[in-house]
Design a protein around this nucleic acid. Structure first.
Length: 538
RNA sequence: GGGCGGUUAGUCGAGUGGUUAAGAUGCCUCCCUUUCACGGAGGAGACCAGGGGUUCGAUCCCCCUACCGCCUACCA
């Protein structure tokens, strides 16, 4: 088993997250990025963001900005990666505009960090491989390959490229290219024998070379595919630990052979387990995963559609810190029974060895619980600060509220804090505070207003008149007044409070009755009481 | 079809050649409370995927099978 501590590894620890800008950042990809970040920070190393945009056709406008904003929101930022100038050099049409204020001024020493800007470096490597006879030009067209594949499929035998051009002379190939013939470059994999790979978590795997073919390392458009670009960049960027998703395991031997052919030292390879949806299928942009930051236009059959997906953080109201905590626990655990752990604690508890090899399911119920825990742990001020925008989204608060409006909303918010599990719930929880009259739920009116009829009407009138005289208007005095009236009417417990609650809030559940009344103020309370008296009379 | 990876309650997961197999979430009950939520106390829920070995003894070690997943592109 490869040693995993930084002491046993003579290079500084550097890890990377290397997404392709083909959509929004979702929880599955982010979980793996988080693991990478944790490894780097655990050993005082650097975390790099590298954009894998070698497939130019799949670049989606806006995905780059969404990616960076999400990482920023989650507090998992890169030490090296896209900066103002490298982003400015991008085709705005293709990548979408990126607000420069979210970008760092400098990218780092090993850039550029966009693969599309590293083409000359790939050519160098390709040239070397060609010269050393470790790679070769191949002239099949896409159509020819497709046809061959179809034949193999029909005969139910595995398709392997026939290596037709493996031993062609380089000179002859170059002539054909000079004549304008399109070609790709393929890497010479061993034709037979065992290929050994070592993963830090899963140990050694022996692969049979006869089941592998000579894969493409330069496409006919001149771009390298992932297999080549990632290997070159990981080397050039001095990546010490390549931590990626387990979907890369099948191509692991290709990467190991490439590194070997180039005479480079293997990084420590770590394949983290997938994050699955409730249906046990891997979460992906196309399957069940939601964006961290939204809204994001959905990509359907390669086309952007108007079905905007909502963001977990800014629209559904999950706290970034709760998300980070929760996600860290999918595929990793501290080894004891701790679960609610802020980032700093996650960092000190983290270890590569404790990463699991088994995929984990994204359990939305448990996330909801944990989000509630984090919301309750927020200071009142912090909670209000974060919740206010959700009230504005719901139009309960104007876009430019005055001081009084903010103060009133803040008090309402504070009363609901311990009940909130997602920030977007605050509107439904506090909406009755705002209009002159709340929406009276039919059920509540029937149960607590109409049922008592004239008796209830009399009781509520008495409550109203008693409240109209009190001074000062605060929770204690309000409670005293209501309770005294209740006693006069021989009411206690629910009989005493429920009709009043329904009268002033329109519903049966909510924060403490007296603090609610105190918060709403005298005018609003009396207006509602008067209305409820009418409702009770039928 | 082939290759690879995975398998401890619904879910997340700890764990060890001998344990009553942690804990959390979700569910249920009770307590607290004016209600809801929070909090507190309990409860149900796992033949440790199945079958063979090895062993005095296997959830743990080995083999086989099943199931699930991933890859099988001039995508990443």
């Amino acid at each position: 088993m490869t040693e995993l501590t930084s002491d046993s590894f003579d290079r500084p620890v550097r890890t990377r997250f290397a997404p392709s800008p083909t959509g929004f950042l979702h929880v599955g990809a982010f979980r793996t990025a988080l693991f990478s970040w944790l490894v780097a920070k655990k050993f005082g190393g650097q975390f790099i963001l590298r954009v894998e945009d070698t497939d130019q056709a799949r670049v989606v406008p806006g995905s780059l900005e969404s990616l960076i904003r999400s990482m920023q929101a989650l507090g998992i930022m890169y030490d090296e990666g896209p900066d103002k100038s490298s982003v400015a050099a991008l085709d705005v049409q293709k990548y979408g505009a990126v607000d420069p204020s979210i970008l760092p001024d400098f990218d780092g020493e090993y850039g550029p960090y966009f693969q599309s800007q590293r083409l000359t470096r790939y050519s160098e490597v390709l040239e070397q491989l060609l010269e050393e006879g470790k790679a070769y030009y191949a002239f099949e067209t896409q159509e020819e390959l497709d046809a061959q594949r179809a034949v193999a499929m029909a005969r139910k035998i595995p398709f392997l490229y026939n290596r037709r051009y493996r031993d062609f002379s380089l000179g002859e190939s170059r002539d054909r290219i000079a004549r304008g013939e399109p070609a790709v470059i393929r890497f010479k994999m061993p034709v037979s024998g065992p290929i050994r790979t070592v993963d830090a978590l899963r140990g050694e795997t022996i692969w049979d070379a006869t089941t592998m073919d000579d894969f493409i390392i330069q496409k006919s458009d001149g771009f390298p595919p992932y297999h080549l670009a990632a290997i070159v960049d990981d080397h050039d960027m001095l990546i010490s630990h390549v931590l990626r998703g387990e979907e890369w395991i099948p191509s692991f031997p290709k990467h190991v052979c490439l590194v070997q052919a180039l005479g480079w030292e293997q990084p420590i390879w770590i394949h983290a387990p997938s994050v699955l949806g409730t249906d046990k299928k891997k979460l992906s942009k196309r399957h069940g995963a939601k964006p961290l930051i939204g809204p994001v236009p959905e990509l359907k059959d390669g086309e952007l559609t108007g079905d905007f997906l909502s963001g977990l953080i800014n629209q559904e109201g999950y706290l970034p810190e709760a998300l980070v905590n929760f996600l860290a626990l999918i595929g990793w655990s501290p080894g004891d029974d701790r679960e609610v752990m802020p980032l700093s604690e996650l960092l000190s508890a983290f270890s590569v060895e404790a990463i699991s090899t088994a995929p984990g399911i994204f359990d939305a119920d448990k996330l909801l619980w944990m989000n509630g825990v984090y919301i309750r742990n927020l200071s009142r001020e912090d909670f209000v600060q974060r919740a206010l925008p959700f009230l504005q989204n719901a139009k309960l608060l104007p876009d430019n509220p005055n001081i009084e409006e903010v103060t009133y909303a803040s008090v309402a918010l504070e009363l609901e804090q311990e009940r909130v599990k997602r920030l977007d719930e605050v509107s439904a929880l506090t909406d009755f505070f705002f209009p002159e009259l709340p929406v009276y739920s039919e059920k509540s009116v029937a149960n607590w207003l109409r049922k008592g009829g004239m008796t209830t009407a009399a009781y509520l009138s008495a409550v109203a008149s008693s409240l109209s005289n009190i001074e000062p208007w605060n929770e204690t005095v309000v409670e005293q007044a209501v309770r005294n009236t209740g006693i006069e009417f021989n009411r206690e417990k629910g009989e005493l409070t429920h009709p009043v609650r329904v009268a002033v809030t329109g519903r049966e559940t909510g924060p403490g009755l007296f603090e609610t009344i105190a918060a709403m103020g005298k005018k609003r309370t009396l207006t509602r009481l008067a209305h409820a008296v009418e409702l009770a009379r039928g």
